[in-house]
């Protein structure tokens, strides 16, 4: 039972990070029909920028909360500009091109970001300096650290804010209208280019926060870390129904829990043949299963009624 509770806690925390990254995939897919494979790497850039800021400031003796706010702020700024530039330079010229062209471009941008990061930060793992001393809270024999709690609460806060924004604000309504019919949105006075650029900025900024969370949670960063994180978040988006914002949240949390449960029980289930380091199998097993059984995902519309 302790294992179950512990893995549920770990899974929800991890899942809330997946969900934040999945939002970036799903928002861009909803509006452009493009799977932005560079999104995981934007998160990586956010993580490494945050790490650099923490390293510089922690050494100078700046108090921890201020360090975190500045690290997050810098990561958000850099990632927003990065997302904005990528959309402008790489995707906008291909808006009316066949769908394969922007997809291949996205993969190209992903590789470009990875190796530019390798040039800047090197290929070794970068460790987070000691910054926080998270306390542990005991819940039914399992432990929830204050760091985990902070990550989960912040992630949920961001997601709730975003869902509210898309549902209730003028810009959010314009985003949904553009997603459903960009030409008619233009007839209403919506500048579709602005809405798309805005979507990239919001997705990238949320990705930056997720990057900071990963760095704090695992204590390390690496130029290639966006690859697996991106694939998992993409899986989460597909699981929830890609294009559906609520689906990304649900898919992210579910995937985190599935993965944590699997890594907690995989040893017992396989008689010790496979260890918890095989947990990545489960994320992709989920991806394959969803694509076979319900390609539109848990909350997605089936292809037909997307007008």
């Amino acid at each position: 039972m302790e294992i179950f509770t512990q893995q549920l806690i770990n899974g929800l925390v991890l899942g809330s990070i997946y969900a934040l990254v999945a939002l970036g995939y799903t928002m861009v897919y909803g509006i452009l029909g493009l799977i932005n494979f560079a999104h995981g790497d934007i998160t990586m850039v956010g993580a490494l920028v945050a790490l650099t800021v923490v390293q510089a400031l922690a050494a100078a003796g700046v108090p921890a909360p201020l360090v975190l706010v500045l690290a997050g702020g810098c990561a958000i700024l850099v990632c927003s500009l990065l997302g904005l530039s990528i959309e402008r330079v790489a995707y906008r010229p291909l808006r009316r091109a066949p769908r394969l062209a922007p997809l291949i471009t996205a993969i190209g941008i992903s590789i470009l970001l990875q190796y530019t990061a390798a040039l800047i930060w090197g290929k070794q793992y970068i460790a987070l300096p000691k910054l926080l001393e998270p306390a542990a809270i005991d819940i039914a024999g399992a432990q929830l650290t204050t760091l985990q709690l902070a990550i989960f609460v912040l992630a949920c806060g961001i997601m709730a804010l975003l869902l509210w924004f898309i549902k209730a604000s003028r810009m959010g309504r314009a985003m949904r209208a553009t997603e459903q019919n960009p030409d008619v949105a233009g007839l209403m006075g919506v500048n579709v280019d602005t809405v798309i650029a805005f979507t990239f900025v919001v997705g990238s900024a949320i990705g930056a926060v997720a990057g900071l969370m990963v760095v704090l949670y695992y204590g390390i960063g690496h130029y290639f870390m966006g690859f697996m994180l991106g694939l998992k978040a993409f899986t989460a988006a597909v699981l929830g129904g890609i294009g559906n914002v609520g689906g990304a949240v649900l898919g992210g949390l579910l995937l985190g829990v599935i993965e944590s449960m699997a890594s907690g029980y995989i040893g017992d289930l396989t008689g010790g043949v496979l260890g918890s380091n095989y947990r990545d199998i489960f994320a992709f097993l989920v991806l394959v299963l969803v694509l076979v059984v319900k390609p539109s995902g848990l909350l997605g519309q089936s292809g037909g009624d997307r007008a």
């Binding site: 003028r170 309504r173 314009a174 949904r176 209208a177 459903q180 019919n181 030409d183 008619v184 949105a185 007839l187 209403m188 006075g189 919506v190 009624d305 007008a307």
Partner: peptide, 17 residues
Amino acid sequence: GVFPRLTVAENLAMGAY
């Protein structure tokens, strides 16, 4: 060209964008 997954009121609000 109505927005199919917006409500009637939301469609009208888009008209006043």
